[in-house]
Design a protein around this nucleic acid. Structure first.
Lengths: 128, 128
DNA sequence: GCCTTAGTGATAATGCATTCGCAATAAAAT
DNA sequence: ATTTTATTGCGAATGCATTATCACTAAGGC
């Protein structure tokens, strides 16, 4: 039977409150504010468990390790800031991408990643 | 000074003739038809060299290792077949993706990956 | 409060792509 | 042909994310 541990709650909360996909290490950093002794192994174990029970979703970006976000946010894509490396959700979708594929190919799905500067990094630059 | 070896030529040719991004192991398999003794270490060395001199480009897809394609094909995106795993180029681009980003974010670039079945896998299924 | 056992922390182990070390090979300049 | 040295093949080494091990801890049912 599944138990409700402080660690698991802290991990779930950390991802939920971030509102953006987090790396395991980022989850650790955030969740350690609730549970200081939390270990990285426990983060990995729970990320997997929470993903299997459908609470979390793995987000893969090109050349990056898996990040984790809350499940159930509907179809969306991601933006990665080239300065701070953080990833954000972006809603919306251009649609009708199937037309780009070569003739005879069946398109079932797609991923879009936007790259640039997030608001925070832009405003920090402005001040510098 | 840079030398013109059978190995390097075979590697360059393999990528050019495939017409699609190849994994180092796929490059090895293809180039070994020209140079049977070719080793994987040499493939890695030359993929790096060729990339540095601008002849090849690294292609990163979500959750995948780097593939390599000929440079100079202009802006394009990629399609990955879920059955055979191969990656193909797709021309064209929906454009105007910047509007998807949250306000205050500056979009500089983007990656699009389409997923589905390639023509070969579809027709093989049809026959099965 | 006690017991059972899922969960945890710390660290070692694993898996895997990629790179390194080095003796042997082969371009290409002389 | 000889010499020089970039390049190669092979296997060992590396780096790094993730997972396994195991003794200990603490949920939660009784």
């Amino acid at each position: 039977m599944e138990r409700n541990t402080r660690q698991r709650n802290a991990i779930r909360e950390a991802v939920a409150q971030a509102g953006r996909p987090l790396l395991p290490q980022e989850v650790l950093d955030a969740a350690q504010r609730q549970v200081p002794g939390l270990s990285l192994a426990t983060v990995y174990r729970n990320l997997r468990t929470l993903q299997e029970e459908g609470a979390l979703r793995a987000v893969m970006l090109p050349g990056e390790n898996a990040r984790y976000e809350e499940a159930g946010h509907g179809h969306h894509h991601h933006f990665q800031c080239r300065q701070c490396g953080r990833v954000f959700e972006v809603e919306g979708c251009p649609g009708n991408l199937a037309r780009l594929a070569p003739p005879g190919f069946a398109v079932e799905d797609h991923d879009i990643t936007l790259y640039g500067r997030c608001r925070e990094c832009l405003s920090a630059d402005g001040k510098a």
